[in-house]
Design a protein around this nucleic acid. Structure first.
Lengths: 190, 190
DNA sequence: ACAACTATACTGTCTGGACGGTATATTAAT
DNA sequence: ATTAATATACCGTCCAGACAGTATAGTTGT
């Protein structure tokens, strides 16, 4: 029961993301999702009582899995900058950057901006973590924003970076994190 | 004649952006736009033969006005880094960052990702300009991505930055442009 | 000067289809 | 037997686009 329910719900969320990614947010219809998940429309509506509830589920899943991956990355690293490093790495990793789940963001934008509220709240926590990284806050913020910039660029297929440049950028961001941290630890100067 | 046509088209584009911004992309309907522009639906369809054509018009307008502002900013500055500096400044300037016209992007995402193609093409040119800035290409790209990150954050109301931090970040980005340029001009080292 | 004609810039109405959501069956699990 | 899960049929609404018609301005012929 609880298990099959969770399985079905997860299957539905995956199907919803798939529909958004392959056909665009405007094609995110209950029928399309149900068909993709090989479930009837009634079945979908049993688990998610409305389209809005479905998208809320997508958003919650996106945030939860992102947080989980951040935690996995940071627990083996005691540096204060570990969080920022993990954030950057996740944003750049094609397997972990949650581009699949990120369809949730697109669905929310397309359907009702209010659905973004949980993400807005999460960003507050992320910025706090960024500023607690031990780096100069402006530098730390620039690093976070650059990671976001890449993530959004790739989410909308805008990124014109070659694979080489992309790798260089990642490397440079990680170097900035390491070096800026040392600056502040060794010299305690600006 | 031609003048009133241009006026009406411009009025319609403005109305369309307004609808997206105030009611969300899902409420971008021909009727809503027509009403906002105080024109009949038939009148709208006279100027833009389909909803798709309307959004294409919005995108073209966004790109054109962004390019125009970049040009205005750069023509009084001969540095190779002028383009990147202008890009950063435009992204941060609430008056010039085209957050109004940027509704076009939201509309495209919500309706049909194919509508983003002109923007994808523009990004190629922007990345070329970024790499021609005289800075280390990875640093220059990070600067551009950070500007993008802020722009997207604010477009979706995600940005958790205080006004002070925001100002610091802008200042730091401009400083990076100036300093990195000097590094390469003075020392001709990495 | 002026009628005949054409092009431009609209308005208001209508329709076919899609979609969200409901109501109601049907089947499976315990 | 009862609850959980899934399926089918259907309703009402909304919306893109078509269409027919109107008003006004410009053009041409005489």
């Amino acid at each position: 029961m609880a298990k099959t329910t969770a399985n079905t719900k997860s299957k539905l969320l995956k199907a919803a993301s798939q529909v958004v990614r392959s056909r665009g947010a405007s094609q995110l219809t209950l029928e399309a999702v149900a068909k993709e998940a090989r479930v009837s429309k009634g079945g979908l509506l049993y688990h998610y009582r409305s389209k809005r509830a479905l998208i809320e589920g997508m958003i919650a899943h996106l945030l939860a899995s992102f947080e989980k991956d951040i935690e996995n990355q940071t627990k083996s690293n005691e540096d204060r900058s570990a969080w920022l490093e993990a954030y950057v790495k996740l944003s750049f990793d094609p397997h972990l950057s949650h581009l699949e789940e990120s369809a949730a963001l697109v669905a929310a934008i397309a359907n009702d901006p209010e659905l973004l509220v949980p993400i807005q709240e999460q960003y507050l926590a992320w910025q706090e973590a960024t500023e607690a990284s031990g780096l100069d806050p402006a530098i730390a913020t620039i690093v976070r924003l650059a990671a976001d910039g890449l993530w959004f660029n790739e989410l909308f297929d805008l990124s014109p970076l070659t694979a080489e440049r992309r790798a260089e950028v990642l490397e440079t961001l990680l170097k900035i994190i390491k070096e800026s941290q040392n600056d502040r630890q060794d010299c305690a100067e600006s």
